[in-house]
Amino acid sequence: MTLSSISSTLSRRPGIRLGLLLAAPLTWLVLVYVVALAALLVTAFWTIDSFTNELERTFTLDNVREITSEALYRTVTLRTLGVALLVTLIDCAIALPVGFYMAKVASRRSRHLLVIAFLMPLWASYLVKALAWRSLLSNGGLLDWAGGLVGLGTPGFGVTAIVLTQAYIWLPYVILPVYAAYERVPDSLLDAAGDLGARPARTFRTVVLPLVVPGLVAGSIFSFSLTMGDYITVNIVGGANQMLGNLVYINSGSNLPLAAAIALIPIAVIMIYLALVRRTGALENL
C-alpha cells in the first residue's frame, strides 16, 4: 500500500481516521484515568495483613462499614465539606464583583492588567503560596499586625486559616470562568434592561446573574472539589486540624484499602454536588 493510497483510504473512511486519531489519547485516558480509579474502587473492598502490610485480596465491607459508622469520619467529612463550601462561597463572592468590573467596567488596558494579576499566582508554586500564608498568619505576621490595628489578633493556624488560604489559592480558578461568562454577556443586554426600566441592581439580578451562573458553577466545581481533596494546606496552616485528604494520606502507607475507602467519601460528595448542579441545567451551558 503506498502512502497516497493510505491517505486516500483514510479520506474516504472517516471512522478509521477518527479511530487512529483518538487511539493514543484514549489508551492513555483508559489506563491512567479509568484503571487508576477502578483500582481505587476495588482496593477499598480489600484488606491488609496488619504486620507485613501485604494486601489481602478478599472482598470485605469492613472499610466501608468503618468509615460510615465511626464518628471520626463523620466529623472530618463535615469539617471538610464545611471548609469546601465556605471557600466556594468566598471565592464566588469575590469573583462576582471582580469579574464584572474586569469584563464590563475596566478599560481594555486595565482589564488585561487585571487578568494577568489574577493569573499570576497560578505561576507560583502551590507550596510557596501556602507557606506565604503561613507566615502571614503566624504570630507577629502581617495579619497579626493588621488585626492588631482594629483590636484583633491573627486568626492563627486552624480552620479559619485553611479557609483563607484555600480561598486564596483557588480564587483564579473561579474568577476566570466567571470573567469569561461576563465577557459573553453582550453590553447591549445591559443597555436593554436599563432601557426597559430596570435599575442596575435589578438588571444584575434578572439579566446578568442568570447568564453568569454557568461560569459561577464551573468555578465552584473547581474550588469545591479542589478544596475537598486538599491536605497540604491543612498541614501547613491547619494547626492541629485534619481533613479527609489527611486521613487518606496517613492511611495510604499503612492501610491502603482504608485510605481508598476514605477517598471514596470526597468522590461521593463531589458526585452529589455535580448531580445537584446538573439539575439546575447549568452544565449544559458551560
Binding site: I48, S50, L72, A240, Q242, L247, I250, N251
Partner: peptide
C-alpha cells in the same frame, strides 16, 4: 498494632 495506632492517631486529631 501499628494499624490500630494509625487509626487511634486519626481519632485523636479528630
Amino acid at each position: 498494632d501499628y494499624q490500630d495506632w494509625t487509626k487511634a492517631w486519626a481519632e485523636i486529631k479528630g
